[in-house]
Simulated scan of single mutants.
Amino acid sequence: MQRGASIFSSMARADATISIPENIEGYDENSQVPCVLLRDEGELQKRIHVIGSHDLSLDIIRDMLKIRHPSMEFLSTHTGSLSGLFAIKKGISDLCTTHILDEREGVYNIPAIKKYLEHIPCILINIAKRMQGLIVKKGNPKGIKGITDLGRDDIRFINRQPGSGTRFLLDAQLKEAGIDKHNIRGYDREESSHTAVAVMVKESVADTGIAIYGVTKIFSLDFIPLVEEDFDLLVTKTFTEDERFTMLIDLIQSKEFKGRLDSLGGYNTKETGTIKYVNG
C-alpha cells in the first residue's frame, strides 16, 4: 500500500491497461497484447505525441496549440534524441525531436537518420538553432571557463542521460579536449532535461552542467557558450498526411512562434520551419 499514491497517479495519466496472467513474468517487445482503453478513441486522435530530446520550444508549441486548437493535446516525452529515433524505427511514435552531432561529418541529425532509419520515409524540420553551454551560478563562483575545467577536483558536474544529444555533445567535447570522463566528478549523475540540470546547479547540488541558454534566464544562472546546434523535428511520411501535422507545421512556421523563441534568448530562428532533409 506504500506505493498507492504513485499507482493512482499512473492510472490517472494512463490511456489503457493490460492484464498479465500470473503464470508469466511479462510480454516480449512487439508482442500483440489485448488492452482496455481508459479514454475514448476519438480523444486519442486529438493528440500529438513527440518522443525524444527536451527543449523549451516544446512548451511554447504546447501552449500555442492549445490556444489555436483547444481540443488538441500536445505531449512530449523526454527520453533523449537517440531513443526518439528508435521510437520511430519501432513504430512507437511518428514524431521525435533530435540534436545528434556526427563528429566525423560535423552535421546534426542527418547522418544518424541515414544510419538508423535507412528505409523509413520521413522528413526533418528545423525547429531552431540553439546555444548550448555550461551553466553556472550567478557570478560564476568557481571561475569555470570551459570544458577543460570539468576535470578539476573541486568541480561537481551534473550530466544528461545516455542517448541524449547533450550527452553526445559532451563526449565529443571531452574527446577533443583530451579529458578522461572518469576524472569528472559527477559524470555518472544524470538528469533527463535542461531544466532538471538547471535546478541542480541553482540548488548547489552541482557546480555546472550542459544546458541551453534559455534555462539560465528562468533560473537566474550564468552561461558559458560552447556550440550552436540544430534542434530538429523528425516526422514520418505517414504523419505528414494527417491533419494534425498541418496544425503543427503551421504553428512552427508562424511569426508568433519564432517571436516567442527569440524572446527567450539563445535561439536562431532563421531556418525555423524549413525542411532540411527528406529520407526514404
Rank of each mutant, 00 (worst) to 15 (best):
M1L: 06
Q2G: 11
G4K: 06
G4M: 05
A5G: 06
R13Q: 14
S19E: 11
E25C: 12
N30V: 05
V36C: 08
V36M: 10
L37R: 14
G42D: 13
I51H: 00
S53H: 07
H54L: 01
H54N: 15
D55N: 13
S57I: 05
S57C: 12
L65G: 04
M72D: 09
G80I: 07
S81G: 10
K89H: 10
I92M: 11
L95T: 04
E105P: 01
G106D: 02
Y108D: 12
N109W: 00
A112M: 09
I113L: 08
L117K: 06
E118W: 02
H119M: 08
I120D: 01
P121D: 04
G133T: 07
P141N: 07
G143W: 00
K145N: 10
L150Q: 05
D153Y: 01
I155F: 01
F168P: 01
D171N: 13
E176H: 09
A177D: 00
I179R: 08
I179P: 12
H182Q: 13
R185Y: 00
R189Q: 13
E191D: 08
A196M: 08
M200I: 11
V201A: 04
D222W: 01
E229A: 07
D232W: 01
T236W: 02
K237Y: 04
F245Q: 06
Q253W: 01
E256D: 15
R260Y: 04
R260N: 09
Y267S: 09
T269I: 14
K270M: 07
K270S: 13
T272I: 08
I275D: 01
V278Y: 00
